[in-house]
Design a binder for these strands. Structure first.
Lengths: 205, 205
DNA sequence: ATATTAACCGGACCATAGTCCGTTTAGCAT
DNA sequence: ATGCTAAACGGACTATGGTCCGGTTAATAT
């Protein structure tokens, strides 16, 4: 699915940019490897940039040159999983992918996203420290456009843009993780409520 | 409206706790005064705990003993406005307060909250740094219970708890501020979309 | 092979939230 | 008034994200 390159997880470098130098590439791999190990062992929340630099055997400056900041590192660590999920709802089999009616796709999207969030909640939290990183980043924009499109297909023609944004908010990672971990709400219950929400939204009285 | 004391903005001290010492009370007032001035002049985002301690003429330890952390300070600064808004939707005149049909109260709540958020967005952002501070704090819990109650009154009897949580998410301060400031969405448009959202939720097909 | 240079490297440095603990003091009992 | 004690005080200290800049090196041209 080469089209994926049109949906970058992170903004790509400009076209004319020179290729990455070999030592830079090597250090990036070292850093990603070390980061994955640290996350696997201690969790994403416990990952400090100093510890990462130390474990990867590079200087701290190098870490920040690669990833910009902590959120950028988390985004990079998420990018594979995020691309995979995008594949599923754009090209995958119904009901998540094309072929099912919009309502079923909306319901499936929410359910899929809920389980995605519960699996990658810590990384998502780290990646979304600022509003800019949470809302105006390629995966979030794509999710929003996807929901907006499904709402339109379902006949919602009164400001689907804002309505899609509200739906995105209902799938906010911190909210979902809090519901499950603090209040003991089951993922199934969240998914059922989501289904009811989208059902009612596209089937007005 | 003495009942307000039953709806504390921040968790109160235990009943048997000894009274606050006079020097502590004096320093708390100094700190709040200084904090309000700093927020008024430079904005809440620019307020640092060091600068606050310095301006109030107290040590840094005192600041943290009073407010626990930066979020606690922001909550305290918000408490008057938050209590005021609570008054309005619990005891105030319809459609925000009791007396109007549930749908109208829901619509009015969202509209009121949107304008509240746009006025106090910076403080709300500072107060809600952690999920715990965002979701499981008295004002948030009260808002959630209020929405849940209105949903029940409107005949929604299938998991109104989670549905109310989704509605709370749709009013997330960072989302609202981002929509308005970054995407240029007008508050009126947000309020209209919110009205449509709650209308569809309580008037299923 | 050598020179050139732009990119990269690393770690010292800065800013700020939050902690700790020895010192001071308000409130009270005598 | 004096002494006692628990509370409060304040500033040095720590942790961590992020910046800066002088030295190093990979890629390229000659």
């Amino acid at each position: 699915m080469f089209l994926v390159s049109l949906i970058p997880i992170r903004p790509e470098v400009p076209f004319g940019a020179p290729a990455e130098r070999s030592d830079a590439a090597r250090n990036r791999e070292r850093l990603l490897q070390a980061a994955r190990e640290l996350v696997a062992e201690y969790g994403a929340e416990a990952l400090t940039m100093d510890a990462l630099a130390c474990k990867a055997g590079v200087g701290k400056g190098t870490v920040f040159r690669r990833f910009g900041n902590r959120a950028g590192l988390m985004m990079t660590l998420l990018s594979d999983a995020e691309a995979d999920f995008q594949q599923q709802f754009i090209f995958g089999p119904p009901p998540l992918g094309p072929g099912a009616p919009p309502l079923e796709r909306l319901a499936a999207y929410g359910e899929g996203r809920i389980y995605f969030v519960l699996e990658y909640g810590e990384l998502l939290k780290g990646a979304g420290v600022s509003p800019r990183n949470r809302f105006d980043v390629p995966p979030a924009m794509l999710a929003h456009r996807h929901l907006e499109l499904l709402l339109r297909e379902a006949g919602m023609d009164e400001d689907p843009w804002v309505m899609a944004m509200s739906l995105c908010s209902a799938l906010d990672p911190e909210r979902i993780v809090n519901d499950v971990r603090v209040h003991g709400i089951s993922p199934k219950r969240l998914a059922a409520s989501w289904r009811q929400l989208v059902t009612r939204i596209i089937n007005p009285a």
